[in-house]
Structure formats: C-alpha cells, structure tokens
Amino acid sequence: MNHATRARRALLATVLLAGGLLLGQTVTAPVAEAATSRTCNVNRLHQQARDERDRAAQLKRLGAREEARRAAARADALDRQARQCARADEVVAPPFGR
C-alpha cells in the first residue's frame, strides 16, 4: 500500500509538472514572439537624452545641483540604452531556418 501511495504521488507530481510546463509555454509564447519582433527607436532615445541634458543644464543654472545630477544620470542611461539598441540591431543574427 505504501508503494502504491508513492507511485500515485510521483504520477501526480509528474502530471502537475508537465501541465505547468505546458501552461507556461502557452502563456509565454505570444510574449516571446512580440519581444523578437520589437526593436528600439534609437532616434527617440537620443532625443529623450538630449531633452534630459537640457533639463539638467537648466536645473544646474537654477541651483538645483542634486536634481541636475539625477537628470544627467538619466540622460546617460538613455544614451547607453540607445547605443545598446543600435548595437543589437547591427549584431543580431537572422533566425535559424530563414
């Protein structure tokens, strides 16, 4: 009897695991498909970085040094993201089978 209980538990665990994997695949499939077709808008990122740099300069002129530092850091992050996106678009290999 103990052996049958262990077998049922193992079977139940296997079924739950397989069901969870199947459910996970169906939920993430559209997300993965959307993520592969989406690219960054590098020009928009550069424009946002320029806007943040202008804002940082204005804040610095007004004497808000800490806020200016944060705005400059956001501008640096946007520039870095734009460079990464541009590099990813250049380096990306075509999908296998195409």
Rank of each mutant, 00 (worst) to 15 (best):
L11F: 08
L45K: 02
R69P: 00
L17Q: 07
A35D: 14
A86E: 15
N41E: 14
R55F: 02
A32Q: 13
N41P: 05
E52Y: 05
R55K: 12
A71Y: 07
G97P: 06
G24M: 02
R83W: 01
E52G: 00
L21W: 09
T39C: 06
E90A: 15
K60P: 01
E66K: 11
P94E: 10
A29S: 12
A64P: 00
V31E: 05
A72G: 07
A68D: 08
H46V: 15
R65P: 01
V15P: 07
L23M: 06
A68M: 08
A82C: 13
A77M: 05
A82K: 11
A29T: 10
R38W: 11
A35H: 12
H46K: 13
Q48V: 13
A71T: 10
A32I: 02
D79W: 03
Q47Y: 09
V15A: 15
K60Y: 08
V15N: 02
G97C: 06
R74S: 09
A29K: 09
G24E: 04
N43V: 07
V91S: 12
H46P: 00
L17C: 15
P95H: 11
N43P: 05
A49T: 05
C85Y: 10
V92T: 15
Q48K: 06
F96I: 10
G63K: 09
F96L: 14
S37P: 00
R80G: 05
G63A: 03
Q47E: 14
V31D: 01
A13D: 12
P95I: 01
A35T: 07
V27C: 04
D76I: 01
L22D: 05
G24C: 06
A75Q: 03
Q48S: 10
V92L: 11
G97M: 05
G97T: 04
L59C: 04
R44V: 12
D89F: 02
E33A: 09
A34C: 01
L17N: 01
V31F: 12
A49L: 05
A71Q: 11
A93G: 01
E66G: 03
A77L: 11
R55S: 08
V42Q: 09
G24T: 07
D89Y: 02
A18C: 04
V91E: 14
L59F: 00
R83G: 07
H46G: 00
Q84K: 11
A56N: 08
R70E: 12
A82E: 06
R44E: 13
Q47I: 09
E67N: 11
R53K: 10
Q25E: 04
A71D: 12
E33M: 04
D54Y: 10
A64M: 08
A77E: 12
D76L: 04
E90S: 10
R53C: 01
G24K: 04
P30W: 03
D51M: 05
D51K: 06
T36S: 14
R55V: 06
A56T: 00
A82H: 10
E66L: 10
D51Y: 00
H46N: 14
S37R: 14
A71L: 12
N41I: 08
A86G: 09
A57W: 01
V15Y: 05
G97W: 03
A13W: 09
A68N: 04
